[in-house]
Computed example of a mutant assay.
Amino acid sequence: MNVRVAIADDERLFCSGIGMLVGSQSDLEFVGSAHRGDEVRGLVDDARPDVLLMDVRMPGLDGVSATEALLGEGVDRPRVIVLTTHRGEIAVQRALRAGARGFLMKDATPELLLAAVRTVHDGGTVVAPAEPGSLVRDIPDRPRDDASIAALSRRERDVYLLAARGRSNAEIAVEAFISETTVKSHVSSVLAKLGLASRLQIVAHAWEHGLLG
Rank of each mutant, 00 (worst) to 15 (best):
residue 77 R to D: 08
residue 138 D to H: 06
residue 30 F to K: 07
residue 142 R to Y: 02
residue 96 L to M: 15
residue 147 A to D: 11
residue 140 P to R: 10
residue 1 M to N: 12
residue 79 R to T: 08
residue 106 K to W: 12
residue 138 D to G: 05
residue 135 L to A: 14
residue 127 V to M: 05
residue 132 P to W: 06
residue 152 L to D: 08
residue 157 R to C: 04
residue 104 L to F: 02
residue 80 V to G: 07
residue 90 I to M: 08
residue 73 E to T: 09
residue 60 G to T: 10
residue 37 G to E: 11
residue 201 Q to K: 02
residue 183 V to I: 07
residue 185 S to F: 04
residue 111 E to V: 07
residue 54 M to K: 15
residue 94 R to K: 13
residue 45 D to T: 15
residue 73 E to H: 10
residue 176 A to I: 00
residue 43 L to T: 10
residue 148 S to R: 11
residue 164 A to Y: 02
residue 1 M to S: 12
residue 74 G to F: 02
residue 137 R to D: 12
residue 101 R to L: 11
residue 44 V to G: 03
residue 23 G to F: 07
residue 15 C to H: 09
residue 97 R to K: 07
residue 8 A to P: 07
residue 6 A to T: 08
residue 51 V to M: 02
residue 157 R to M: 03
residue 83 L to W: 04
residue 175 E to H: 02
residue 72 G to T: 14
residue 193 K to S: 13
residue 14 F to A: 12
residue 1 M to K: 11
residue 190 V to T: 07
residue 29 E to P: 00
residue 212 L to K: 01
residue 3 V to Q: 05
residue 196 L to I: 04
residue 57 R to S: 14
residue 125 T to Q: 08
residue 98 A to F: 09
residue 203 V to I: 11
residue 71 L to A: 07
residue 139 I to S: 02
residue 152 L to P: 04
residue 109 T to D: 13
residue 154 R to P: 01
residue 168 S to T: 15
residue 5 V to Q: 05
residue 186 H to G: 03
residue 71 L to V: 09
residue 96 L to Y: 02
residue 52 L to I: 12
residue 208 E to S: 09
residue 150 A to D: 14
residue 114 L to I: 15
residue 160 Y to I: 05
residue 45 D to P: 00
